[in-house]
């Protein structure tokens, strides 16, 4: 049986690691986006996510109570201690795949953070309220982009259909409740992720339909990210890059 504190720590890592990993992936577009306006917009999204990371991980470190900082958690944990969704750690692939991923994640974040605003935990509520404003804009932008590209040319349609087919098996993990979620729910900190599922499906179906894309039929979900049991091979490479300076020069100030 995990303690309330342990559950809260795990919960906060999930929020923070989602933001950190997606922020990192999104920052990789800087300088190589499909058009300047998108390049700039994607950087804004990445900056929002890095900002959210700082808030969630700082609180996580405080709850952990070992005198660590947000940076310690971001740069000195190994892959099996990360608690992000698999969906967010897979490489960007092409722009279509990246924006589809963003859209599927935003469709979750908006109702999720909306619920968290009324969390019994004031810090969770505050961070969520701030993050929600950003998520709403990300959602507006990502859903509109998915619609444009799905409905655009034959070529862009094909890219987007391939993107949704690729992302789909990773999306189900968002709703797989586990013991951490149960404990957090019992404490009134957050609803069960599964309770968001119908809202998410409605939103996503509406976007895909407007985008003239076919929703994949399978409900199969790749799991192992948010509990850290089995990440993809990609996370290790991402961390090797991201953590290189902190790992190579332990204790240095930057």
């Amino acid at each position: 049986m995990m303690t309330a504190n342990e559950a809260l720590f795990q919960f906060l890592l999930r929020q923070g690691d989602n933001a950190l990993v997606l922020g990192h992936r999104t920052s990789q577009w800087c300088g190589v986006g499909p058009v300047l306006e998108e390049d700039i917009a994607l950087a804004n999204t990445a900056l929002d996510l890095i900002g959210q990371t700082q808030l969630w991980l700082a609180y996580a470190a405080e709850v952990q109570g070992e005198g660590k900082s947000a940076n310690d958690l971001a740069f000195l944990r190994d892959a099996y201690d990360f608690r992000n969704l698999l969906l967010l750690e897979v490489p960007n692939g092409n722009f279509g795949q990246a924006i589809m991923r963003q859209c599927l994640f935003d469709a979750f974040q908006v109702p999720w953070l909306t619920e968290l605003q009324t969390s019994s935990n004031q810090q969770v509520a505050d961070i969520s309220a701030k993050s929600l404003k950003e998520a709403l804009y990300h959602w507006e932008r990502s859903s509109e982009t998915v619609i444009s590209l799905g409905d655009g040319t034959e070529e862009s349609h094909a890219y987007m259909q391939a993107a949704v087919d690729f992302c789909w098996p990773y999306a189900g993990e968002m709703f797989c409740d586990d013991a951490v979620d149960e404990a957090i729910n019992t404490a009134g900190i957050a609803p069960l992720p599964s309770s968001i599922r119908q809202t998410w499906i409605d939103q996503v179906e509406s976007v895909l339909s407007e985008a003239t894309l076919t929703k994949p039929n399978s409900d199969f979900a790749q799991r192992g990210g948010r509990d850290g049991i089995r990440h993809t091979e990609h996370l290790g490479h991402m961390l090797a890059t991201m953590q290189v300076l902190q790992r190579s020069f332990p204790g240095a100030t930057w």
Partner: peptide, 11 residues
């Protein structure tokens, strides 16, 4: 990025 620019314009 060509397919992205063209796709968005077409839409």
């Amino acid at each position: 990025g060509a397919w992205v620019r063209e796709g968005m314009m077409a839409h």
